[in-house]
Design a protein around this nucleic acid. Structure first.
Lengths: 219, 219
DNA sequence: TGTCTAATTATGCAACTGTATAATAACGGC
DNA sequence: GCCGTTATTATACAGTTGCATAATTAGACA
């Protein structure tokens, strides 16, 4: 009846770090950030709480790493459309980007839940605020480039500040639809947000982003 | 040197409740929701922690009440424009609504901080989720009515589902601009969000919501 | 002024938090 | 097969949290 010590496997340091980040994301997504204690995250990762301190300076450091990873995943999955549609027209690439940001896996209750959990810490400043600013800028700049190309393709030339405002506005619609769709999934149709997003961005830019331009093939 | 007991004043139960809600909102806005402990809120309200239990079933109940109050304040301040512009054209009332939602005090870092703090709890379900759904529906329905009036005024008749999508889209731009402006205040000009919002909503609906239609008088 | 009510304070507690430290054992190199 | 390194576990601790309970006292009413 001697207390048995837990058996374990040693895995590479990088894999262990990633496992802990994945565990943190899973706990936040499923039970909320309040439940993401060191003990809960460690349990999810299949290790004991002390190990977190061995790989991260603090719980906040792990949280920061998880946030950076989540945002990186989201932007990669959204921007990834471009690689696929490199041969298409600029309008089609813009449409693909908009739609990708408003369809799973980018647009999902889980993704929004994660983002919301981090939001509080983003506002408190520090490393996470920097990550937020960087992510936002990267996303919007990318969108701005696509808009510029699409407008140029249509033979329209716009001043830099007008272009900037277009990017801010289009980014806002996408963000708003993404957020509302994630918060109240049952209030909207399956692909409704993507369609509304395309129609809205098209109307704001005076371009035709009709569905037949979108790459809807399943990979 | 006997330990002195804190002196206090009795105030009406309603005032005490309101003071506690105000204290909760103040603490969340200034120090984040993680710092909104019963002790911190009580201290801010000038009472001892135990009194919270006397007026609210639990800390969560107080949090719910504070959330409902905050959202109620925001919608009232946004919709309040209508009363002022009752004599104006439908387009002007729509423009006033959009601009009101994208200018202080509705659009402010503090308002967004508060909203963000609550967001986590909204997603966990319960009373706060209901409040969220109600608030969202109320806001969007109001917006939809204004859009319908403005379109009718312009002699345009639209099907109900088209109208619904317009409301979802316009609501999304407003939400997105409101959010981004609150998260990164330094990234945008003073009245930039309101102007972008008006231009975007106008473009999406095919209406002219130019600045001269907006009621910009100071009260 | 005296008395009653309940609003308010004071105290205590059990659960949980993040993290530091020491003990242990897995696994690669010899 | 042994050994050293260090990844991993076990344990401990001080601080904090929400809340329940008992003790007080402010203020209304007679």
């Amino acid at each position: 009846m001697t207390p048995e010590r837990k058996t374990f496997r040693r895995i590479g340091p990088d894999q262990r770090r990633e496992a802990m980040i994945a565990a943190m994301l899973a706990v936040i997504a499923e039970e909320g950030i309040a439940a993401a204690t060191t003990r809960a995250v460690a349990a999810r990762a299949g290790v004991t709480p002390g190990l977190i301190g061995h790989y991260f300076d603090s719980k906040d450091a792990l949280l920061s790493a998880a946030y950076a990873q989540h945002m990186s995943d989201l932007t990669r999955e959204t921007c990834g459309q471009d690689a696929d549609g490199q041969g298409d027209s600029a309008a089609a690439r813009l449409a693909g980007f908009v739609a990708a940001g408003l369809r799973p896996p980018v647009a999902s209750a889980q993704a929004v839940t994660l983002w919301a959990g981090f939001l509080t810490h983003v506002q408190r400043g520090g490393r996470m605020r920097e990550t937020h600013a960087e992510t936002y800028a990267e996303f919007r700049d990318h969108l701005q480039g696509l808009i510029a190309d699409a407008l140029a393709e249509a033979g329209r030339k716009v001043a830099p500040d007008v272009l900037r405002r277009h990017a801010i506005a289009c980014n806002a619609v996408i963000d708003g639809l993404w957020l509302e769709g994630g918060l109240l999934p049952e209030a909207f149709g399956a692909d409704e947000m993507a369609q509304i997003g395309l129609a809205s961005v098209g109307a704001m830019l005076g371009l035709d982003l009709t569905p037949d331009l979108i790459d809807t093939r399943e990979d």
